[in-house]
């Protein structure tokens, strides 16, 4: 499955988002904050950090990485792609 699609589905299931499908999440829209269609907040960021570690074995342990990676699905996929085996 394409990485972006997989990320969207994981976010929906792990963050228990209701009334949202993968198709509703835009690739370049903000994931967090008032401008986000998903309405994620800092508590959801805790889930996302643990999710990335559990699913991909990838760490987001500092502010600069989080700021770069957690902007949108595009940025998250770009951050993950070189760190995980493609298949």
């Amino acid at each position: 499955m394409e990485l972006k699609r997989r990320l969207k589905e994981l976010i929906i299931s792990e963050l228990k988002l209701t009334n949202v499908t993968a198709d509703d999440i835009s690739d370049d829209g903000p994931l967090f904050g008032a401008d986000s269609a998903l309405g994620l907040d800092s508590l959801d960021a805790v889930e996302l950090v643990v999710l990335l570690q559990k699913e991909f074995g990838v760490e987001v342990g500092d502010r600069a990485t989080a700021t770069a990676a957690f902007t949108s699905i595009n940025s998250l996929a770009a951050f993950l792609a070189p760190k995980i085996p493609q298949g």
Partner: peptide, 15 residues
């Protein structure tokens, strides 16, 4: 203060 209030760092530290 700032993006996500430092939450990713705290989560990673606990993990």
């Amino acid at each position: 203060d700032g993006f996500l209030g430092g939450v990713p760092e705290l989560s990673s530290a606990l993990a």
